[in-house]
Every structure is written in structure tokens, then in C-alpha cells.
Design a binder for these strands. Structure first.
Lengths: 339, 339
DNA sequence: CTGAAAGCGCTAACAC
DNA sequence: GTGTTAGCGCTTTCAG
């Protein structure tokens, strides 16, 4: 089925059919009707590839994230989708499973597919490797890569300060032996959070005890395992900052299994996933503006897509995360419920 | 940048360049090298559109789901992705927000984009409307639409029996006044679950009390609101079957707010989302094989895409959901922890 | 092993 | 208003 057959059926030229399909130039109402009838009868849909041969845009952007099951990633995706819809673009979503090879291979495929641009939450590529993407004339915006803020378009959040704020809060409750569990696979962000942790300790005149800084798999079970290690120490911590809510759930579960309560060991998470608000105790966590990060990244992406030449300096935007105090630190005071 | 420039630079014909790019026919090692050098130097990527003009496949499939934030939907998406990767296809993911207009419009766009096929979790289109998609020569597989099982390719799960099993379990614990909250927007599935509920009551000789069958918004707050209505009844239920885990979280929260416990009102959810395993009490729920549904749907889709003519009868596959007993029904016996 | 040339389905000047 | 024609960038016969 192609434009020629439609033209024959309607008894007009292919140009006329093309004009009708694109509702561009003037076509008399009578011929338009003839064409539309033929289109309907033949169930004609213009060939997307032929159509775009004349265009240099594909109206498709890529979105690469490490894990589709992580809620905050999908909130970001929704933000991206919102903007993409306005721009009449579709999103090809790819999951990299935190694997470098998958990431590289997927980016290659997307470039071959002539996507207009890419929003990239890279967990594995180095700053240098990312920079090399420009040689493929790929337009992209990075998420959560503060290390690239100098040279690339980056949207991230203030992990370091937010982590610092969280640890400060532990101190404000009188807790002093504070541990941190960072997700082993989130290298860049993990470092940021750890830095914030260190800053807070320093500020409060507490020496860093390296045995209180441990890595965990970013799952509930991973949180349980990591918490297990901390709780069996002879000098166990009285506070645990889990760098993701998912791990925090495991930490709390493990504390409970040990017959302890959050009065003994307070817990703060990071991400503010929805279920944190209904578990018992309600999770004190750091809320991250994922949706707005998606919106922002997509807007920047379309800006650079729509530029003729890339002239603008790369932008680096930092959206604010902040502590959301609920109940999991054993604070006794009545605190207004926060959802 | 196009094949011609590469050919010029390499001092060969465009045919040769094409052959090298497709590593198809024989090319001498020396000319291959010349071409590859030119390709690298010019950063040449073949134009996807021109390339596919000769093909009738786009190597892109669509995946339409109502809500990307729902974990089970994304598990399904992972299953689809797994198969798509093997087939070297990309996935365009679209969120319909349970809105009919968005659903229709998105499908139209995807057809224009010449996707090879579509996995469609439709919440709003009627059986008739879905059938009409065939006239657009769209190949598709439906998720969770048992009502279309006769005429379309459908992958679903046994909502009715699983719901029945859940309600049976309440009876086995001696609970008799059992309410059900169905998600207002999940029309088809909700009906199925409600039917299972009715069957169980009938089986146990209990008359259906329509005031115990209510609809709720599929959010934590929606669950709270619905539970509120049930709990303030003069003759309040001693068991609530929430048709989604998300609502179940709200139900449990609300029970707690009323100063009641699960000993007073047992709760069963549906979906088995991860956090159900760490909340307190751990949620008894129905576990749904989302990932396998995604795998299965994608396999069927590629089968029908790869057929020349659509000759096969439509398939309808039902994967089994089953009750996962944890703690939220107030059962005292020690039960092996189930994750 | 390599190249010339004919399309793929469509759009966009350019005529009429 | 409508048709003719020349490409878009690539693949694919068909000759050499």
C-alpha cells in the first residue's frame, strides 16, 4: 500500500494525495474528499521512513535509565514524557541494568536509529567516554552526573548537601555513632552522599570510622544484609543512613528482626518512594525532585535539539532535595504527618 | 553526511560503502579498511530512514500502559524488553494515564510511526474499538483483557479465581463480613475480581451485601478513603480485600488510625509489590506474574509480526496468580516468611 | 570483488 | 488547484 495506489484509486496525482495527507497547501474540497475516501478504503498510512527521508528529525528521543523498577526513575520518565508529548515526540525507553556493555550497546543502537536526542542516566560511562559521544553528533542531557557539570548538559540534585542535612538531623537527635550504607552500583551518586556524610561528621567534630561506611546491594535484601553487618558490631551504630529507601526498608526490617527498635537505631532513607509513607515506622527520608528533573532535562534536550548549531554553553542545573522528617529516627515529638 | 561523501573520501562507489556497512557481501580487506577509515573520519552513521525504506519492518514496537509508576506494569515492561532485545527491537513506551483520548491518540501516532506491533494494556477501549485496530493492519497483543479472549491475542491472569482464593482464605480464618474495594479506573479487571469475590461468598452461603462492595481511587489515599467509609459503618466488616496493594497500604494505615488492628479487620491486597514484604504487618496479597506476562505477550507479538499472513487463530494465554499468605490477616500461626 | 543504475515512498520545487 | 519531475540516502539487481 503506497501513495501511488491511493492516487490511482482517487484518480488524482500523488502530489495531491501528499497534500491532503499533510493538510498543507490548498486542495479543493471535492478532491480532498475523493482522496480521503480512497485513503479510508485502502487503509492507507503514509510510510514513516519515506516521509522522514526529507526531514532530519525523527521525533523520537531516547531515555536510558539503569532500572525501570525503581520508582524515582519512572517519575523522571513521566516528566520527560510530559515534555515529549508537547513536542510530539515519542520516547524509546531502555534499561541498562547498571551494565556498562548494555549501556554502550544501547547508545550505539539508538544513534543508528537516528534519535533526535538522548536523556542519559549513566551509571557506568566515564566522563571521557561521555564526552566522546559528541563526535557522533548525539545531543544529550545527563542526569545525576555532577562530575560532568563543567562540560556537559547536566541535571542533578544536591546529593551531598541533602545527605549532610540528613546526618545533621541524626546529630540533632543526640545520635553520634552514625553509619552510612551506599548502593554499590551507584558509584557517582554514592560518592556524593558519602561526602555529605563526612562533612556532617566533621562539622560535629566526630572522627570518621571507616567500618561504619559500607556498601550494599540496592534491594531490600541488600539493606538487610548491610544492616546485619552493622548491628553485629561490638560497638554498633545508633543511627543508619541508608542511601536509598529500598535499602532503608531492609534496614528497618533487620533492626526489627534483631529485636531492636528505631529507638535503638534510627534510620533515614533517600528517594522518598511512596510506600515509605505507610510503613511502620513511617520512613524519614530525603525527597528528590525526580519528576521535575525529568521535565527539566527534557526541556534542555529540546532546546539543544532545536538549535541549529550547538552554540550555547552547556547548562548544569541542580534541583533541591530535602529532608522529609517522619518517624523512623525514633523522635518522640509529635510531628505533622507528611506524605 | 551521507553515503556519497564517504564513498568519495574512500575513493570507492556508494555500493561498496553500503556493502561494508551491512557487512553483507564480499569486499576485499583493503577496500573495507579504506571505507572504515572514511566512516570513522567523517563520523558517518547510515540514515535510518533511507535504510528502512526498503524494509517493511521498523524494529520498533509500542508498549502502552496506563501508569508507569505502577511497579507491576514496569515488571511487565521488563519482560517485554527482554524479548525485544533478543529481536533487536526497541520499545516506545507510552503512558495513557487511564484516559481514553490519550490512548486513542497515542495508538494513532504509533501507527503513523510504522511500529511493527503493539503490546496494549488498554483500560478504556471497548472490545469493538480494539477489533477495529485490525483494519489499520496493526498487529497487537492485549494485556489483561479477558473479555477479548475470543477474538484477539490476549495475555492475562486468572483474576477471578485468584480473588476467589483470597476471599476463601478470609473465610478459612473465620471471618465472615468481608468487604472488597476495587480500583475505580480498572474497569475490566475490577469486574473480574468482584466476580471472584461474589463466587466465594456464594460458595460459603453468605449473601452479598452491596454496601460492602465499593470503589476506590488506586492510590494509598484512595485506599484510606475507601477504608474510612467501611470502618464507619455501624456493622463494619472484619475483613477487607483491597484489589490493589497500593490501596491495601492505605487500608492498613486507616485501620491503624482508627485505633484498630488487623485482628479486628484483616486485609488482603493484590499485585505483590515489593514493599508489601517489609511493611508491618507484612501484607498478605495475591502475586501476579507480571514479568512472565510481559515475556509471553512479547513472544506472541513477535510470532504474529514474523508471520507473513495472519493465519493463526488468536491465542489467549492465562498465567496463574496465587495467594501469598503473610501477616495482614491477623492469623496467629507462625508462617514461614515469604518474600 | 566492484560499480552503474534502478528504484523504495514520499515531498517539494516548478510548471500549467 | 493540480500535475510533472527531480531528488532524499540507501539497497539491490545486474553487469562487468
Amino acid at each position: 500500500m503506497n501513495i501511488k495506489k491511493v492516487a490511482e484509486k482517487a484518480g488524482v496525482s500523488i502530489t495531491t494525495v501528499s497534500r491532503v495527507m499533510n493538510s498543507s497547501e490548498k486542495v479543493s474540497e471535492s478532491t480532498r474528499k475523493k482522496v480521503m475516501d480512497a485513503v479510508k478504503e485502502l487503509n492507507y498510512t503514509p510510510n514513516w521512513f519515506a516521509r522522514n527521508l526529507h526531514n532530519d528529525r525523527s521525533n523520537v528521543i531516547g531515555l536510558l535509565i539503569p532500572d525501570m523498577l525503581e520508582q524515582s526513575n519512572m517519575e523522571l520518565a513521566r516528566g520527560v514524557e510530559k515534555v515529549a508529548r508537547q513536542k510530539e515526540c515519542n520516547i524509546i525507553l531502555c534499561n541498562t541494568e547498571y551494565k556498562k556493555t548494555l549501556e554502550e550497546q544501547t547508545i550505539k543502537t539508538l544513534i543508528e536509529r537516528n534519535i533526535d536526542g538522548l536523556i542519559l542516566m549513566s551509571s557506568a560511562l566515564s566522563e571521557q567516554e561521555l564526552r566522546e559521544l559528541h563526535s557522533q553528533k548525539l545531543r544529550f542531557v545527563l542526569i545525576d552526573r555532577p562530575d560532568c557539570a563543567e562540560t556537559e548538559n547536566v541535571v542533578c540534585t544536591n546529593y551531598e548537601e541533602a545527605a549532610e542535612e540528613a546526618v545533621d538531623y541524626f546529630f540533632s537527635l543526640g545520635r553520634k555513632r552514625i553509619a552510612i550504607i551506599v548502593a554499590d552500583r551507584a558509584e557517582y551518586i554514592g560518592k556524593n552522599k558519602e561526602n555529605g556524610y563526612r562533612k556532617s561528621l566533621e562539622k560535629h567534630g566526630v572522627d570518621v570510622d571507616d567500618s561504619l561506611i559500607i556498601k550494599g546491594e540496592d534491594t531490600i535484601q541488600g539493606g538487610m544484609v548491610a544492616a546485619g553487618k552493622l548491628l553485629e558490631m561490638k560497638n554498633r551504630p545508633d543511627a543508619i543512613f541508608a542511601a536509598t529507601d529500598t535499602m532503608a526498608f531492609g534496614v528497618i526490617e533487620r533492626i526489627r528482626q534483631e529485636g531492636l527498635t528505631i529507638e535503638d537505631v534510627g534510620v533515614i532513607g533517600f528517594d522518598d518512594i511512596q510506600t515509605g509513607a505507610v510503613m511502620e515506622p513511617k520512613l524519614t527520608t530525603v525527597t528528590k525532585p525526580s519528576y521535575r528533573m525529568g521535565l527539566t532535562a527534557a526541556r534542555i534536550l529540546f532546546d539543544i535539539i532545536e538549535e541549529e548549531e550547538i552554540t550555547e554553553q552547556p547548562q548544569s542545573i541542580v534541583l533541591q532535595s530535602r529532608l522529609k522528617i517522619r518517624k523512623s529516627c525514633g523522635n518522640k515529638e509529635r510531628i505533622r504527618e507528611i506524605w
